[in-house]
């Protein structure tokens, strides 16, 4: 079997329903897209994302609620800020920014999820396997 990117998807409670919806409506996506459900995207510690890369993920996606859908209180704004900062940091150690993405997925957007995942997988496939040679954290 040829190389296929391995992807960790952190899904918040609500967007996890969106991911459910994808399967429910029969939108398939590759099996090496592995989901981790968390209560809210804001709980995702940037070091957890780094850990995923370190342990062999070729890409990490974070799916979260659109900040505009959360009215005035929007923890996913915090997530967005953290992810964009981490993308820049990753670039400095040679990890392409596009390997870390945040996706706004509502609880009924299954088709959007499967479409976006397939598109992102295509891009990551072109980037090839992530080779960071050992631990990023310990080296620091």
């Amino acid at each position: 079997m040829s190389w296929k990117p391995r992807v960790i998807v952190f899904t918040c409670w609500c967007s996890s329903s969106g991911v459910d919806q994808a399967g429910f409506e029969g939108f398939t996506y590759p099996p090496n897209v592995l989901t981790v459900r968390v209560p809210c995207s804001a709980v995702i510690n940037p070091s957890l994302i780094v850990k995923a890369f370190e342990k062999g993920a070729d890409a990490v996606l974070v799916t979260a609620c659109r900040p505009s859908e959360l009215r005035r209180v929007a923890p996913s704004r915090v997530t967005e800020a953290r992810v964009s900062l981490l993308r820049r940091l990753l670039r400095t150690i040679g990890v392409e920014e596009d390997r870390l993405r945040i996706l706004w997925i509502s609880s009924n957007e299954g088709s959007l999820f499967s479409r976006e995942v397939s598109r992102i997988l295509g891009e990551v496939e072109r980037l090839g396997p992530l080779n960071i040679g050992g631990s990023m954290v310990e080296q620091g």
């Binding site: 991911v19 459910d20 399967g23 429910f24 398939t28 996506y29 099996p31 090496n32 459900r37």
Partner: peptide
């Protein structure tokens, strides 16, 4: 663990779904 919507229903075949 959701092995229905996020696994069985999201994978193309039995081999892949079992692996996932």
């Amino acid at each position: 663990v959701n092995i229905r919507e996020q696994c069985a229903k999201a994978c193309g075949n039995r081999e892949e779904a079992t692996w996932k």
